[in-house]
Amino acid sequence: MTITTKPAPGRTQDADLTERILEATEQHLRAHGFSGLRVEQVAQTVGCGKTAIYRRWPTKEELAAAVVTHQADPGVEPDTGSLVEDLVIHQEQSMIHQSYEQGLRGERPIWGILIEPGVRDIVDEQFIAARRERGRTIVARAVSRGEVPPETDADALLDMIAGFSFYRTNVRDERLTLASFRQVASTVAGAPPLRIIT
C-alpha cells in the first residue's frame, strides 16, 4: 500500500485527508497492532497535525474502529427460501469485509483488533449489531418455513458459523471458500443449537 507522506499543494480536502489518515492508521495497525498504534506517528506519516486526527476520532479506539468499518458494507438481506443458502450468502458478505486480509501473511489482521474491548464495542454498535439482527431474521424465516425447530438458538447458530470463519481467517490465516461456508451452514442447519430452558 502506498501512503502519501506530504499533503498536495494547496488546501487538502477533508475527505482526502480522512482517507489518508485511515490508510496510514491501517498501515500502523498491521505493523504494530493496536497496542503499538501511536496517533503522533500516524500524523507524521500523513503530514498533518494530531488535532486533525482527534477532531475526527477523539480516541485511539474510535480511530481503530474507523479502520475496521471503513471498508465494511452491510450487503443485502438474503431471502432465497433456504436457510443454508441464506446463511452462505450472509457469511460470504461478512467475509467480504475481511477479504482485504488475504495475501498479507506476516502482517497483523485488521479484524483481529476486535479483541480490544473498546474497539469491539464501537464496531459492534456501528456495524456488527445490524448484521447480527439480519442473521436473526434469516433464522426466524427458516423457523416459519419449518426448516428448523422454533426453539432454535439463532445467536448460537450464527456464532458457530461466524466463529469458524473468524478462527480460520484470523488464527489459521486460511482462505475460506463458498464450499466451506456451505458445509458449515449445512451442518449447523441440520442440527441447530437449541435454546436451553432453565
Rank of each mutant, 00 (worst) to 15 (best):
G103Q: 07
R134K: 10
V119Y: 05
P74D: 13
A24I: 08
D86M: 05
T45C: 06
R168Q: 15
G146C: 03
E92P: 00
V76E: 15
P149R: 13
A185P: 00
Q93C: 00
R136E: 12
L114H: 11
E85V: 05
R175K: 06
Q91G: 09
P192M: 10
M1V: 05
I138C: 08
T152A: 12
I197Y: 15
G106W: 10
D14S: 04
A179G: 06
W111Y: 11
R145D: 03
H32S: 09
Y167V: 06
A185D: 07
T169Q: 14
A130D: 11
P78M: 09
R172A: 13
L158R: 13
L63A: 14
W111G: 02
L29T: 09
H28F: 05
G103F: 04
R105G: 09
E174K: 12
R20Q: 03
E116R: 03
T187S: 15
L178E: 10
L87A: 03
E101S: 01
G10N: 14
Q126N: 07
L194M: 15
G106R: 05
T69I: 15
D14L: 04
Q126V: 12
A189P: 12
P193I: 12
C48M: 09
I128D: 02
W57K: 03
M1R: 08
Q44M: 12
D73H: 12
L104Y: 00
P74W: 13
I53L: 06
I138Q: 06
R30L: 08
F181G: 06
R141Y: 13
A8C: 02
D155R: 11
T69Y: 08
E19T: 07
T80Q: 09
P74V: 15
Q41A: 08
V88Q: 01
D153C: 10
A154C: 08
A31L: 11
E174Q: 13
V76G: 07
H90A: 06
I196K: 14
T5M: 01
E26C: 00
N170C: 10
S144E: 15
G75E: 10
S144W: 04
K50H: 09
I110W: 00
T177A: 08
R136M: 07
V139I: 14
R38N: 06
M1G: 05
R105M: 05
S82E: 10
Q71E: 12
H90E: 07
P150N: 12
R131Y: 01
H97P: 00
A31K: 04
A185S: 09
R20T: 10
D73Q: 11
P58T: 04
W57S: 10
K60M: 01
R120D: 02
R56N: 02
R195I: 14
